[in-house]
Each structure stands twice: as C-alpha cells, then as structure tokens.
C-alpha cells in the first residue's frame, strides 16, 4: 500500500510540475492545483498510513495522527485562496496586457521547418 501511495504522490507531483512549466496561465493554475494535491497527500502521509483508525477520541484504541491532518486541513483552505488569487491575477493580466502568457508577452518563436513537422 505504501508503495502505491508513494507512486500516486509521484504522479501528481510530476503532472503538476509539467503543467507548471507551461507558458499560458491557465495550465499553470491547473498544475499548481495538481501540485498542491501531491503536497497535501505527502504532508498527510507524514502521520503514516492507517486504515480504520479512530478519528475522534473514544471511538477506538488506535488513533490516527491528528497533527498532519490539522496542517493539511488549513493547507487545503489556504490552497483554495491561493488558487483563486492566482486565477484572478491571470484574468487581470489578460485584461491589462491583452494575452495570457506567463511573461505578459507572447514570445516570437520562429519554428524551423523540421520543428514544425
């Protein structure tokens, strides 16, 4: 199970980083969201994985680690605020600059004939 979980964290991170490196704002926002999923899962895993442990006191003898959960809970909410801010910033940038490239201007890329194929 741990290996599978780690694999999922890796896939989320890789997907997030790839999209983060795109040149237009929307894929970057999506990448940021994917990356924060990966990071949240990673932070959550610092409490180690437990199936069917008690989530509240008195519901069982084994108790899952509450600290990473509290950290991740706030991270999710702040993550939403950050996504919202970045998205609106992207909109504002498009409105003010006329394009949605991360640099604020579309680079003039001259493709070679072989690259075009």
């Amino acid at each position: 199970m741990e290996a599978l979980y780690a694999f999922c964290v890796g896939v989320l991170t890789a997907s997030g980083v790839f999209l983060l490196l795109r040149g237009r704002t929307f894929p970057v926002v999506v990448g940021l969201t994917l990356l924060s999923y990966g990071v949240n899962l990673f932070l959550f895993a610092t409490g180690r994985l437990n199936v069917s442990d008690a989530a509240v006191l008195g519901a069982g003898s084994n108790h899952s680690d509450p600290l990473p959960q509290a950290l991740v809970l706030t991270a999710i909410v702040i993550g939403f605020a950050m996504t919202a801010f970045v998205v609106i910033l992207a909109m504002r940038a498009r409105g003010d600059l006329g394009n949605d490239h991360v640099d604020g201007r579309v680079p003039e890329i001259v493709l070679d004939s072989e690259e075009r194929n």
């Binding site: 991170t13 997907s15 490196l21």
Partner: peptide
C-alpha cells in the same frame, strides 16, 4: 524534469512512510 521530480517525491514519500 517533471519525471525526475515526481520520482524524487515518490521516493521520499516511500522512504518516509
């Protein structure tokens, strides 16, 4: 780059867990 980073993050998670 993203595959390397993903691999690293996965390895760290596994090693930690």
């Amino acid at each position: 780059l993203s595959i390397v980073i993903g691999g690293l993050m996965g390895s760290i998670s596994y090693a930690m867990m």
